[in-house]
Structures are given as structure tokens and as C-alpha cells.
Design a protein around this nucleic acid. Structure first.
Length: 420
RNA sequence: GGACACGUCGCAUAGUCAGGCCGAGUGCACCACCCUGCUAAGGUGGAGUCCCUCAAUAGGGGGACCGAGGGUUCAAAUCCCUCCGUGUCCGCCA
């Protein structure tokens, strides 16, 4: 949720942000109108209620003889209060709906436009060259006995897979490398729930436009999370926390995504599947520190790319491609040789105070007053990385060189050899 | 799965079985000041969150919040219903 104060005082700023995202700026005027009618209704209710409270107190003190007359007079008032309360509640709901349509205010530096209007900040690492026809990650995965899509489909349907043998171990190795990097930098590890309540899902901003991306269990009224960000953000819901130093958590969880609307996209291999694993960094900090922390998170992500010997670029995502909670987002995209393209391996978003406002996560300022904190999130390892690792480090005979950083997690293994 | 009990201001509890004088007492912890003087205690005062509003960097007025949501009533922490959570016992079982 955006800051209502900002909505009232600087509607132009909010409109500009909505326009930059490609949203209808009229949503802003609608929210402002809903806000004032909500306040009107609230005042009507509250003044009636105040009168009722006062009169009720008199009845309590009144003598037996006085009571019947007073009672009759207040009965009428009670009915009015009930009506006024109902319309105040209605107005409140209407306001929440209206303001909910406004997505987070994008930062000034964010490039305008849509998916293709990103800015490339830098390109790093050595682009892999081959003197043979490189195999794609699935072909390699099958040679190594590491990926089994057929059986994934047999058991669970399209876009499900088994990681097998060295594939499963490689995934775990990447996860542990990421986990250790995060822990070295002061992150506290959490293994969070992957089923969450509606209010937590809504609070993190995932129940808006992308609701059809999410698995829902109606029998239990719970949602399966598409990223541990959800449960990590909910961790401190309705709390007042100390963020004198950034409060850093790293969560390791399985992620579930319906991938509705991406039919036909990335159908081969494990690039886009319904279920995968991810190590996610999540930070609570002050709004003032958020941008600096965002760059720190990006820095750790890049260190991972370098440790894995990947060729990658960093892009500053355009406003129209930001999630509803994000004010700015950097993607790290690694080179995937057989696709002749950079593909997103990690992403890091600065959500400023958008998530915490709805989740009720505040800190106590120097003036003793509470204020919402900022949240940031970023991936530090995920299953998809296997795609770039396998393709980048493959050799003519189908074997794959293990990046040195991963070897300690694989018992010193230097080369992945094809089976049989 | 069955039975019972419970959920109050950071923690622990009182208040619920007689609805109003209870936004709510007490202890501990906390903050400020005082006292004392030596490492622990004594005194006084203060303090919750959210929203609306007047005034406006202070402060005043009002509303809401006793797990959540409904209901009864002029009036609900207190009565009724539903849900959620916790504990104990029984059963069952990876």
C-alpha cells in the first residue's frame, strides 16, 4: 500500500508513477475521492457514536425512575449509529480497493517503458566460446543422468521434473554456496512455511494482478508461495522492530508457480517449471538505507555469478516491468549459449515501504514515533542456475567442468562425466 | 480423530460464573526525575497501537482495539455463535 499522506498531498507524484508503469493515472483520482468519502462517513459515524457513548453512561448512573425515558431516547440513536457504522465500513472497503490499485511509487532513476526498455548497467565475465556445437542444458542433463523431464511429466504433469544423481547434488551445492555467502554477510537463515494465509499473500502484493500465477488450496484457504519472500516478509508482520542495523534473513524453500499465461514459453528443460528451489535474501531496513542495501544485495549476487564463472549482465528494469510492490528492480542475466541470449538468473527488488505498510511492520524513530520500514529481496541461488552452469562449462565429450567454488560441496569433484 | 481447558496493555496475572463506576488493576521489566550512596535498593511521575479531527514541528477533542469475525443490548473484556491459535489427556500413526 502506498502512503496515503503522499496520495493526498502530492497526487501528481503518484500519477506520474502510475503512468510510468503504464497504469491508468485515473486510479489516483479515484483513490482520492474514495479517501474523502471514507473520511466523511467515518466522521458521521464517530460523532454519532460519541453521543451514544455519553448517553449510555448517563443511563448507567441514572436512577430506576429516570431510566425508561432515557432508554427510549437512546434506542433511536443506536439505530442511527448502526447505519452510520455500516456505511463507514462500506466506504472503508471501497477506499482499500481503490488505493490497492495503485502500485508502489517507482524511483526517479528507473527507466520508463515496458519489458524491453531496460537499461544495461554492465556486462561482466568471459563469454563462453565453443569449437563444437554446444548442447543445451537438457541434453547435457540427460547425458549426465541429472535431469529427468519424462518422469516428471508422468508423475506430476508438464513443467515438472526430477533432478537426479549429480543433478540433484549440483542443485544442493549451488544452494549451499549461496547460503554460506549470505550467512557470511550477517544473514540469519530461515526455512519458512511455503503455505501462507491470504492476508500475508495480499500484504506482500502478490494477490493483485498476478493472482492467477498462484496455487491456492480452497479446502484450507491457504496459498502456496512462489517465493520465500512472502513468508519472510510475513515473519515480522504486525511488529515493531529495530532496524538500526539492517535486519537480514536468508530463506531456503521450494517455490510453486502456476505459470499461467506462459503456455508455449520455455517448454524445454528446467528453465520454467512449476516447482523449484530457491535461496532468497530478505532485508528489513530504514527507508533511508534501502537504496544502499539494494546495491549491497546486487553486489552479493554478482559475486555468486563470478564464483560460478558465468558471463552475465546487470539490467535496471523498466517501470512497466516492475512487480506491484517494487520501486526499483535489478536483474542479473546470465549468458545461455544455446539460446544465444541472456536469461534472468536473479532479481533484486527494493519494495521501499509498500509491503510493510499493509503488513504493519514498523520501527520506532528517534522521535519515539513509529514509521514503516523498507523491505528488499533478492535471489542468491536457485535451480535455474543449473541451466547456465551446465551450458557454460560443458565440454565436447559431454562432460562438464565444475566451477571451483562448488567443488567443496561435491566432495572435491572436478568434472561431471556422462553416465554409460 | 475424541475430550477438556485456555487466549487481557513487553512478560506474568486480576477482572469474565452478578453486562455500565474497566481502555482496563497489580507485579516485573522500561523511561524521566528525586533520594541515597556504592552496585543493589527506596520515592514520585510517565508510558500502548491504529484512525478521524482541531491546532499545527508541542498539544487538545473524538472513535476503535481485551485472539479474529459476527450477534444480543441503550451499553460487552464480561452473554451467545463461528473461526483461528495454544495447552493437557486419550486414541491412531509415519
Amino acid at each position: 500500500m502506498i502512503d496515503v499522506q503522499l496520495l493526498r498531498e502530492s497526487p501528481d507524484v503518484v500519477k506520474r508513477s502510475q503512468a510510468a508503469r503504464g497504469n491508468d493515472p485515473a486510479t489516483v483520482d479515484e483513490a482520492i475521492a474514495a479517501d474523502s468519502s471514507r473520511r466523511e462517513a467515518l466522521q458521521r459515524y464517530e460523532s454519532l457514536r460519541a453521543e451514544q457513548n455519553a448517553r449510555s453512561k448517563e443511563i448507567g448512573k441514572a436512577s430506576k425512575e429516570e431510566r425508561p425515558a432515557l432508554l427510549a431516547a437512546v434506542q433511536e440513536l443506536a439505530a442511527q449509529v448502526k447505519d452510520a457504522q455500516a456505511s463507514a465500513n462500506e466506504a472503508e472497503t471501497a477506499f482499500a480497493d481503490a488505493v490497492g490499485k495503485i502500485e508502489n511509487i517507482v524511483l526517479d532513476e528507473v527507466p520508463a517503458g515496458g519489458e524491453d526498455d531496460y537499461i544495461v548497467l554492465r556486462t561482466e565475465g568471459v563469454k563462453p566460446e565453443f569449437d563444437f556445437a554446444p548442447r543445451d542444458h537438457l541434453e547435457i542433463g540427460e547425458l549426465l543422468g541429472a535431469i529427468d523431464m519424462q518422469r516428471g511429466a508422468k508423475v506430476s504433469g508438464a513443467r515438472f521434473d526430477y533432478l537426479r544423481g549429480i543433478g540433484a547434488r549440483l542443485e544442493l551445492a549451488v544452494m549451499q554456496l549461496g547460503l554460506n555467502k549470505a550467512i557470511e554477510n550477517g544473514f540469519i537463515m530461515l526455512t519458512p512455511p511455503t503455505l501462507v494465509k491470504p492476508e500475508i499473500m495480499r500484504g506482500t502484493g502478490f494477490l493483485g494482478e498476478h493472482a492467477d500465477e498462484i496455487y491456492y488450496l480452497p479446502a484450507d484457504d491457504l496459498y502456496l508461495t512462489g517465493t520465500s519472500e512472502v513468508a519472510l516478509a510475513g515473519y515480522h508482520a504486525d511488529e515493531i522492530i529495530d532496524v538500526a542495523e539492517p535486519l537480514r534473513y536468508v530463506g531456503w524453500s521450494t517455490c510453486y508457480r502456476r505459470e499461467a499465461g506462459s503456455a508455449g514459453k520455455d517448454t524445454r528443460g528446467i528453465i520454467r517449471v512449476h516447482q523449484f528451489n530457491k535461496v532468497e535474501m530478505f532485508v528489513y531496513t530504514t527507508p533511508e538505507d534501502a537504496q544502499a542495501e539494494h546495491l549491497r544485495i546486487l553486489g552479493w549476487q554478482e559475486e555468486m555469478m563470478q564464483a560460478l564463472g558465468l558471463h552475465y549482465r546487470v539490467i535496471d528494469t523498466a517501470a512497466g516491468d516492475l512487480g506491484s510492490s517494487a520501486a526499483r528492480k535489478y536483474d542479473v542475466e546470465a549468458w545461455v549459449p544455446t539460446q544465444d541470449a541472456y536469461r534472468e538468473l536473479t532479481s533484486t527488488s527494493n519494495c521501499t515501504t509498500y509491503q510493510t505498510r499493509r503488513l504493519g511492520i514498523r520501527t520506532r524513530g528517534d522521535d519515539g514515533k513509529t514509521q514503516p520500514v523498507a523491505t528488499l529481496n533478492g535471489t542468491i541461488a536457485t535451480t535455474r542456475w543449473l541451466v547456465a552452469i551446465l551450458e557454460t562449462h560443458q565440454r565436447a565429450d559431454g562432460s562438464v567442468l565444475v566451477p571451483e567454488a562448488l567443488r567443496p560441496y561435491l566432495g572435491g569433484l572436478e568434472v561431471l562425466e556422462p553416465i554409460a
